[in-house]
Design a protein around this nucleic acid. Sequence first.
DNA 1: CTTGTATGACTTTTT
DNA 2: GTCATACAAG
Length: 720
Amino acid sequence: MDVSDLIDPLNAAQREAVTAPLGRALVLAGAGSGKTRVLTHRAAWLVRVEGATPFNLLAVTFTNKAAAEMRGRIEHLLDLSSSGMWVGTFHGLSHRLLRMHWQEAGLPQSFQILDSEDQRRLVKRVMRDLKVDENRWPVRQLQGFINARKDAGERPDDLDISDPYMGPMAQVYKAYESACQIAGVVDFAELMLRTVETLQNHLELLSHYRRRFRHVLVDEFQDTNGIQYQWLKLLAGPEADVFIVGDDDQSIYGWRGARVENLQRFREDYANTQVLRLEQNYRSTSNILEAANALISRNSDRLGKKLWTDGAEGEPIAVYAAFNEQDEARFVIERLLRMTEDQGLARSDFAILYRSNAQSRTFEEALLARRIPYRVYGGLRFFERAEIKDALAYLRLISNRDDSAALERIINTPTRGIGTRTIEALRLTARNEEISLWAAAQRLVQQAGVLPARAANALRGFIDLIEQLAAEIEAAPLPDQLEVMLQKSGLRGHVAKDQSERAQDRLENLDELITAARSFEQDATIEEGMDVVTAFLSHAALEAGEGQAGEWEDCVQLMTLHSAKGLEFPIVFIVGLEEGLFPHRMSTEEPGRLEEERRLAYVGITRARQQLILTHAERRRLHGRDDLGIPSRFIRELPPELIEEVRARFSVSNGASAMANSWASEANEFSLGERVQHSRFGEGIVLDCEGSGPSARIQVNFDDAGAKWLVAAYAKLERI
DNA sequence: CTTGTATGACTTTTT
DNA sequence: GTCATACAAG
């Protein structure tokens, strides 16, 4: 590919970014401004024009999906089928470094990765051992605390143990850390922190990588947290060429430790940073863009950026006030069906976005009832399913007997007569001797009289089982290892006898696991010195897989606003725009968190290419109770001239919601289901309304004359 | 030790 | 409404 092919498809601003002189460049790239394109073209430019080799590049993002896309596009631009490029996620690349330098990192060679669930279990275990009151310090909170400390780069010794509140938490952190070390496991945050520490403590390694990675590229920089920033600063030394791309307006992961300030900090830490802005949007109509601009302009402390387009104005933004969540779903689906017919759109052109996962259910039910194929993103992923994790825990234990987290998971799964008393005894010994549960088990089995005979026998049976499995499957291909293990451990039988219709699903999942192992063994490139089991287990933890199959099918897309980031759709519905839901109740108190909610709304709006439809419900059943919904402030913050109220109705009987709706003062006044009288057609029931102002139309099902659409301004309907 | 029922919590989520 | 956990009974 020619260099001009690299440059020609770009606009002036993009071109300036791609061809920026070596040094530090910060690209503030608005939604839909072609940031991924700029990043990948920059990488190709470095190789083509600046004389870099792919070997000199380090390109980092957050998700596996984004990393895969980035790699694919760069390789395509460079016409390479594979390369020595380090392109990946922060965690994936850290993992790679730790595998290569496990000794320097102080880890066992076959260390394993704890996912969030494993981590929570282990934190809980540690808290019980320390007799920390779980009512006062909920496990999740402690887990969050530990991760937040690690994300900030802090170890227990950096904390104040004497503080009455912090103290116990710091102790749990410390005990958790040593439990991980004994078991030879690391959590996600540890991957980052341990990498940073390893590089800091081994300057020869650091300078090796700095010499190698002369060009560092980072996407979604606004999502970096403290430790990731440190990580980048370490690897991108003073000499490196650094190219970062981000958008402060799309920072929606502050609650998980992301620090937008890192964008500013980068400018301060790296002198002579060239700041470039990409403000031309190629995605959305100008109506959509203007709405997004108006909304986000209400936030303070922005780095400043205003999106524009020379595209068409497009449709106004439709706002629909539903009575309840069923009506909301009905409206969305009817709209959707009508648009597929009228405009020849595919189902996959529609996205339904919501604030929280619980909202998907109503839409799923409605779609199911109409037999419209759909796909829900998020939810339980493949490698997170209980039966899969049980199976993997056997592999973990076989490959590392000290992995106590794995042992606890399966010591009595399937049930083999090892109960809490026995496990309690193991823990006591393990804690006193500072050894793993496995070592404790061996010790207790050998010492007669410590355990009741029956428990000792059961435990011996378990130890023998693991040893036998280990001997038997050693050196076998991975899928065969799994097969033998599933059979001999009794896990498959255990899953099969679970009497619910889910048993079948679970068995299929286990088969799917074997299939996954087979294709992994065939396709994956495994680092030198890493055995295939370790690689497979790491893969399972780092890439938990999709939640649902069937990506190829043409279906309506349902997802949270968070998971929509980075995607785009011709038609976008944002539903549940009510105070308390979106912005979420828990984020309305602090101004900072409210602004993050607003950015989330901004992200949602800018997903839409052609049309944006917003809905809110007056009543909503949430957590099993009925709630009255006030339309979200985010609707009010949009310029009224860009909005078309599809039908705003007032529930006259209800003072609170009528007041809530008072902002929509020009809307017509009939409710769905209300009985009305017409001079010619007689009595009927309001079925539907559309539009607002003089052109508003209303559909009434008359008792005698049947369903009719009427222009509200002329129909002179009277409420009965 | 297993099973069933009561209780309470309950944004967002990638790695 | 649903999920996970806690506790009591079998």
